[in-house]
Structure formats: structure tokens, C-alpha cells
Design a protein around this nucleic acid. Structure first.
Lengths: 211, 211
DNA sequence: ATATATTTCAAACGGTTGTTTTAATCAACC
DNA sequence: GGTTGATTAAAACAACCGTTTGAAATATAT
């Protein structure tokens, strides 16, 4: 097979190095060296270092968001057909299952998760803003789905509980490598499904608890 | 009152600037200027930039850990006296309540929380390792307390649910400023208690759900 | 094969970083 | 009150950063 395009090699190297060393901690010299390209290649192909990380984020995030949106919209359509509220567990699963599976879906995805964790805590707004602006519509759709599945909750309680769920999910996403510390872990291949079940069993009772 | 020691002024300025701009994003020149000190002051008083952030972290974290440890140990002692298992909600509250109250306990604490969030995602190991090594003993104590409050759970399930709870808590800690986006928020003074109640009502049913 | 874009290359730019050095200033103590 | 030790001050250090430049090389199209 012919070697990849320089642009793709730059994206791959940047994804890996940004995940490992953060945005500031990764220099264009490191990226271009790892990609086997010239130092000026990033500025030539992307315009700047910021435009590079923007491209890195969008490459992985847009397909994942498409997956989650499809599942949530299918759930809404089905509930509408049955003239009933969507099931809570299915609503949670529609967002959580694709998210947790994402790590195992491709070679660069684990790096991408680490990159996002870094970006969310980075003082540099650009990466975080790119991520948030792309994720917010899916959160809104999820929120809408949940408010139909849990009509007995007032808006404020639902908002808080949604944030609790997001916190549990994202914490697991970012720290899956390192935990649990002592216990034997199931093999990575089917762990996504098992963790999903574990998380859903935990979240469902909390979401529908009396106020 | 006499002006604070240079060392204290450096700690205060570093805490604020590290929280705002991150570790790499904050230069010694910014810190020493804000503290009204000479550029060489950090290397003179602390030895290096890394030793400085280590001192910044310990100053706030050790008292907080003392609070949490005291409450958890009091709970264990009380349960031992009554020859019964500690109450689940009280066990969760013993760790969560001091943590959420911490933000409002002092002027620099909010900055400190932001700093920790940055440190956890920072590629520089030192800050993260300092934080983890100081927090791990309290987590272990919490875990021990919870395993007594929930004897029906096997070790693996408890570990996962503990991580889910930690995720929900830390997500709220780091993002309290920004959420919920639209709803009216209670005044900051008593919000810690209200959020604690909200979080406990969410976590309790999840923790004791059947496996 | 020639002419025209496109891509790569080496080199240098101005600027900031953490740290070190040397001298000046300040404090406390015999 | 002079001396010793702690602190502050200004300047220079070498190293690295993202970006730009202009020429060389490559690929594309006529």
C-alpha cells in the first residue's frame, strides 16, 4: 500500500502526541518529526497549530456524534409511534453505549479520549470550545429524551441528575486505563458492554429516585 | 497589618495564576510580578517551579483531607460502638459534604479546585502524582466505610460504583461555575448543602441497587 | 516535453521560557 | 556598631517555541 498523505500522517502524529503531552507540551517539531514531514508542513497544510488540533478533534468527534444522535432520534421516533414515553434505561443506553464502545472502535480512539480530557482542562479555550460546541447539540437531544422518559421530575432536578450522569460517564471514559487498581479486569474486547451494564444499573435508580 | 511574607505572596499568586492559566501557561515572571517579588524569588524560596506547585497543592489539600478523614473515622467508631454497619447516606455524606463545602470555605479554594482539575489532566506528572498520593488514603478509608455499609455487594461492583460516585462528584466540583446553564441557581452561600442533598439522593439508590 | 501548480525543504526570525550568577540591600545578633 | 547570614535585585544564560521566507523539488496538466 502506498504511504498515507502527509496531511493524514500529521493528523495521526498530532493526535497521539497531543494526547500524550498536551497542547502546549507538544511542539510542531515533535509532530512533524514523528510524521516524517518538514517543520513547515503544519503551517502549510493547516495554517496554524490551533487549526491543526481543530482538525484532529473533528475527525473523530463528528462520526461519534452521528452515532449517538441516530440512536436517540430512533428512540424518540419509536416512542412517538407507540404514543408512549421512551424507556429510561434505553435512553441512557442510547448515549452511553456508543460512547463507551468508541474507545475500542479504532486504534486512535483511546488517544483521542485522552486528548479530550486534556482539552477540557486546558486554559487554551480553542480546543475546549470546539469540543463543547460539537457535543452540546447531542446533550440537548439527550436531555430532551430524558425529560420525556422522566416526566415526574422538575427541570432543575433533571438538569442536576443529568450532570451527575455525565460526570460518572466521563470519569470512567478518562480513567478506564488506570482502574480499578487491584481487581482483575475483564478483557478489553467485551469490557465496553459490561461497563455499560454496570453503569446503567447504577444510574437508572438514581435518575428515577423521588425528589 | 504588616504585609505577608514573600513566600506566602508567591503561593497566593501561583495558586491564582496556575488555576487560570495552567502550569505551562503560567510563567515565573507572571507569578513574581503578581506577587510583587523578584523573578529569582521562586527559585530562591522553593528551588524550582515544580516545587512551587507542590507547595501550593499541599497547603490546601492536607487540611481538607484531615476533615474528611475525621468524619469517616467518627462514623466507623460509632458503627463499631453500636455493633452495626454504618449508614450508607451518612457514609457518602462524610466524604461529599466537606468536599463540596470546601469551595466556599476560603477565598483561594475555588482557584484551588480549578488548579486540581488542570493538574489531573496535565501531562506533567508531578502535580497529579502529588494530588493522587495525598488523596488515595482518604479514598481507601471511604471505600472501607462503604464496604461495611453495603455488605451485600461484591468487591468489583462496589469498586465500580465508587468510581461512578467519584466521577459525579468531581464533575460537579470542577464545573459548578458553569452549570446548570439556564436554570436559576440558589445563592452560593447555602448551595453547597443543597447540592449535597441533591447528589446524595441520586447516589444512594444507585449504590444499593441489586447487582 | 514544456509550463504550471503543488508540495517539500533548510534556514532564519523575533520572542519567551526556567534557571543561574553576581552584586546590592536588609535583618538580627554579639 | 560592626559583622554575619538571609533576602532581594538586575542581568545574562542557553534552550525552545510558532511562524515566515524563498528556493528546491515534485507532481500535474497541456
Amino acid at each position: 500500500m502506498e504511504p498515507k498523505e502527509t496531511k493524514t500522517r500529521l493528523l495521526d502524529a498530532a493526535e497521539h502526541l497531543f494526547a500524550e503531552n498536551g497542547y502546549h507540551g507538544t511542539s510542531l517539531r515533535m509532530i512533524t518529526t514523528a510524521a516524517g514531514a518538514n517543520l513547515a508542513a503544519v503551517n502549510y497544510h493547516f495554517g496554524s497549530k490551533e487549526a491543526l488540533i481543530e482538525a484532529v478533534i473533528e475527525r473523530r468527534l463528528l462520526p461519534l456524534n452521528r452515532l449517538r444522535t441516530e440512536r436517540l432520534q430512533a428512540l424518540l421516533a419509536d416512542a412517538d409511534n407507540r404514543a408512549a414515553a421512551p424507556d429510561l434505561r434505553q435512553t441512557l443506553a442510547a448515549f452511553i453505549e456508543p460512547t463507551l464502545s468508541f474507545r475500542h472502535a479504532g486504534p486512535g480512539n483511546r488517544d483521542f479520549i485522552a486528548l479530550i480530557a486534556r482539552a477540557m482542562a486546558d486554559p487554551n479555550d480553542t480546543a475546549r470550545n470546539i469540543f463543547i460546541s460539537r457535543v452540546l447539540p447531542v446533550f440537548k437531544l439527550w436531555h430532551q429524551c430524558l425529560s420525556q422518559a422522566l416526566p415526574q421530575l422538575d427541570a432543575k432536578t433533571l438538569s442536576w441528575r443529568l450532570h451527575f450522569a455525565i460526570g460518572a460517564l466521563s470519569h470512567i471514559m478518562h480513567n478506564l486505563d488506570k482502574l480499578p487498581p487491584a481487581d482483575a479486569m475483564p478483557p478489553a474486547a467485551d469490557s465496553a458492554r459490561e461497563i455499560t451494564e454496570m453503569l446503567l444499573s447504577f444510574l437508572c435508580p438514581g435518575m428515577e429516585a423521588p425528589q
